[in-house]
Design a binder for these strands. Structure first.
Lengths: 145, 145
DNA sequence: TTAATAAAAGATGATATAGTCTTTTATTAA
DNA sequence: TTAATAAAAGACTATATCATCTTTTATTAA
């Protein structure tokens, strides 16, 4: 098990893929995205439907249709994708799984975990979806084997 | 979904509970542990069987039996509990879920995640199971409501 | 040496997550 | 206005995780 759900991993990868492939106004179909990020096509379709409803990606039906992203969305932080899919548990949850845990009623690990969570939060908030395009363009980074 | 599996959350809580309650050589039964950390009794039993096989906790059957910890185990880092239950995914895994991802073949988020993972790893390695007893003794921290 | 105790072990069930397949709806262009 | 295209939506299946219940084994003390 990773830090994020499989759904969230696919979501992040597909968002990066769409951002990268449609930076110049084009659109990209679900088949191409799925194979480009190595995910099950129909499962990914559900995920993108959700992200589309939440306005993180855009979509168009019919010929020449597909997924794309408005410029404003390229400047969104990755944190919004994570929150849209996995909720705020990664940012907020207690490491030991205790509901009541808080600063005034801490679990034994509260302070240690709070530090880590804050760093994670900061990282996801400071990483903008579109800023990773360059590495993909240059072939320095990859979204599948 | 938290950072760790439910199983791992119960494992950490129960280990803290046992460490705290048996620091002076006693033993504590599964019923008491389960209610003390608010977990399902039989599910926790399985988890403790595993931790017992891996020598992180000790157990004894029969009257006056129960779970306890050898002194040496109180000085183990929490990282060993996490690794015993959830494996090393938290320390090693790619944030985007890509198997191949590594320094020479990185995903777009490789470096950002590596930093977070290393901090998590350090924290879990630097936190010793027994060192959290004091807070529990003083009632400053809690393992359940 | 028997009754009581408590963990170990095994079988089974419930729920959430992940994944697949089929049908419907919207859009485009011929 | 029809055929082709592609996403949306819905039904269904598979798997992993979480949880419960029952039986067995080991240990202790009367």
């Amino acid at each position: 098990m990773g830090i994020f759900s499989k759904t969230c991993e696919y979501a992040m990868r597909s968002v990066f893929f769409i951002a990268h492939r449609t930076a110049n106004g084009g659109r990209v179909g679900i088949k191409e995205i799925a194979s480009g990020i190595d995910s099950p096509e129909h499962f990914l379709a559900k995920i993108l439907q959700e992200l589309s409803k939440k306005n993180i990606v855009q979509s168009a039906k019919g010929p020449n249709g597909g997924f794309y992203m408005e410029q404003v969305n390229l400047n969104r932080p990755l944190a919004e994708v994570v929150e849209a899919v996995d909720g705020n548990g990664v940012f907020m949850g207690c490491g030991l799984g205790l509901d009541y845990c808080s600063a005034v009623n801490p679990c034994p690990l509260h302070h240690q975990f709070k530090a880590i969570r804050n760093q994670m939060k900061k990282m996801l908030e400071n990483t903008l979806i579109g800023e990773l395009n360059e590495g993909l363009n240059l072939g320095l980074t990859k979204l599948r084997k």
